[in-house]
């Protein structure tokens, strides 16, 4: 039971990251391979700000996503916007290259071994069936709140309506007088900021290291294949759900814990190739 609850922590990161990937893909038609690197940058930004300027965790939670999001905006304006007219594969390759550059530079500067980030909340919370470390509980709740807020922003607000419409038919939305290129830049910035926010939340749990996002993003790709990228709520549910599945596997058959998500992906491909929440094609 404890492992299951802890599985939700991983699920929280899967949900936040796959949500960002889905939002970016909808607007940019690009699978953002840089997502893992941007997750790492969020954690690093928090760690550096704490170490150098003494900025506390709670301020980093706001500042780091903004900083990393702004870097994302620059990358979009400099590089990504040049390839929207090309096949999706080029976006994948471009963002893969960007990830290599970013991760390589961080490794070059700070080495591959990680550094710990002190947990801002210590102690445990009694959930009745287990004592859960309070910070992990906070991560699950915060991630859930962030995911739901993102869902609300996209499905229920004016800006979200622009995003949904531009995902469907950018030409027409632009012909209505909306600056779609700016909307695309903004979307990328927000998606990247979301990855960085997940990174800040992860800093006290994982070691802050240049490669902390690499393996995670590969798992998140599997999550995205399982869930399909058509539905915001689908991404959230799939992310948390797979975290749970992973937690359960840790209980019943530990050696398979880090491969179980890929097995689920294989099964989904067999049974429902479009993904659990995806439309055909």
């Amino acid at each position: 039971m404890a492992q299951v609850a802890l599985g939700l922590v991983n699920g929280a990161f899967y949900a936040m990251l796959s949500l960002g990937l889905a939002v970016i893909f909808g607007m940019l038609n690009v699978i953002n391979f840089t997502h893992g690197a941007q997750f790492m940058m969020g954690a690093f930004a928090a760690w550096l700000m704490l170490g150098i300027l003494g900025v506390p965790f709670w301020a980093s939670l706001v500042l780091a996503p903004i900083i990393v999001g702004l870097i994302g905006v620059v990358l979009e304006k400099l590089l990504l916007k040049r390839i929207y007219h090309l096949d999706h594969l080029y976006g994948f390759l471009l963002t893969f290259g960007m990830a290599l550059i970013i991760e390589g530079m961080f490794q070059w500067k700070w080495g591959s071994s990680g550094a710990p980030y002190p947990a801002p909340i210590t102690g445990g919370t009694d959930l009745g069936f287990m004592i859960m470390p309070s910070y992990r509980l906070f991560v699950v709740v915060a991630a859930l709140a962030i995911c739901l807020a993102t869902w609300y922003g996209i499905e229920r607000t004016k800006l979200g309506a622009y995003l949904r419409a531009a995902t469907e038919n950018p030409t027409l939305v632009r012909a209505f007088g909306i600056n779609v290129p700016r909307l695309i830049t903004l979307t990328y910035g927000l998606g990247v900021g979301l990855a960085a926010l997940a990174g800040v939340l992860a800093a006290p749990i994982m070691q802050v290291s240049p490669l902390m996002g690499t393996n995670l993003v590969l798992v998140v790709f599997a999550v995205v294949v399982i869930g399909g990228m058509g539905s915001i709520m689908g991404s959230i549910v799939t992310g948390f759900g797979l975290g749970l599945v992973e937690g359960l596997t840790k209980v019943y058959y530990p050696p398979a814990a880090n491969t179980v998500i890929f097995v689920v992906m294989a099964i989904v491909l067999l049974v429902k190739p479009a993904g659990l929440f995806g439309q055909a094609k």
């Binding site: 590089l79 390839i83 080029y90 390759l93 471009l94 893969f96 290259g97 960007m98 990830a99 290599l100 550059i101 970013i102 991760e103 390589g104 530079m105 490794q107 070059w108 591959s112």
Partner: peptide, 15 residues
Amino acid sequence: EFVLVIQGAIFVVIV
């Protein structure tokens, strides 16, 4: 590690 950076840069430039 700088090899990674260079490889990444090659990806970007070529794409």
